[in-house]
Write a protein that binds this DNA or RNA. Structure first.
Lengths: 112, 112
DNA sequence: AATATATACATAATTATCTTAGGCATAAAG
DNA sequence: CTTTATGCCTAAGATAATTATGTATATATT
């Protein structure tokens, strides 16, 4: 995904957040949307994305609708009710993570 | 470590940052300092910490000095020159990560 | 005296998430 | 005709944690 190891563990959060804004999305669209929003900073690889989607579906956070578009099939994912709640949790966790890490990296913390 | 999976991948960054402020620290002191600075939010487990320290040492980012204190031995770690440079890199990566994630979670991004 | 807590190190088995590298298939563009 | 874009997928391996131990000393509690 990213150039640093910090992105490990963030993919589910990203997916749930996108789907809380977007109603329904398919895998490839997710990769493109992330690339666009992050100005190319973050490229989600398919080897990470599809297993993550399948896992979220298996956990009941996402549901699938397969649609045929121009001789290709697309698997649209959308949040279930549980998934909708979990997306709120995950976003809170991300904000908490950022706050906690900022406590640790705030410069000269042991001088003040 | 944390209550969320987001902390995965952050431990090396935390260790290097602490040692860029502190000159030298031993493992147990690192766990206590992190607990203190994060107001108990983040508790580094020993099973994560010691392997991480050993790895950073093996990579040449940390060097060790064993000191006997009150019949116990402590292993003090400090940054090598390489480790000092790498701590700057890791902090930059963390800031980049936070910025990128904020692009993704900024509310209503696809409305504006 | 016995037990729990704090200090201080360590490793081993397991789990989770990702990377890397492939595979399958259609359509458009060079 | 070969690359690029679209669109899905999985399998092997790497990496970083968790969880559960183990060792040892010192202090505080029951």
């Amino acid at each position: 995904m990213g150039n640093s190891k910090l992105y490990k563990g963030s993919l589910a959060t990203i997916i749930l957040k996108l789907l809380s804004e977007q109603e329904k999305m398919y895998g490839y669209a997710i990769t493109q949307k992330v690339k666009l929003l992050t100005q190319g900073e973050l490229n989600i690889t398919e080897g990470a994305l599809y297993p993550a989607l399948h896992k979220l579906e298996a956990e009941g956070l996402l549901e699938v609708e397969v649609v045929k578009v121009e001789n290709r099939f697309r698997k649209y994912y959308k949040l279930t009710e549980t998934g909708s709640k979990e997306s709120v949790n995950k976003l809170q966790e991300l904000e908490d993570y950022i706050k906690t890490m900022q406590l640790l990296i705030s410069p000269n913390f042991n001088i003040e």
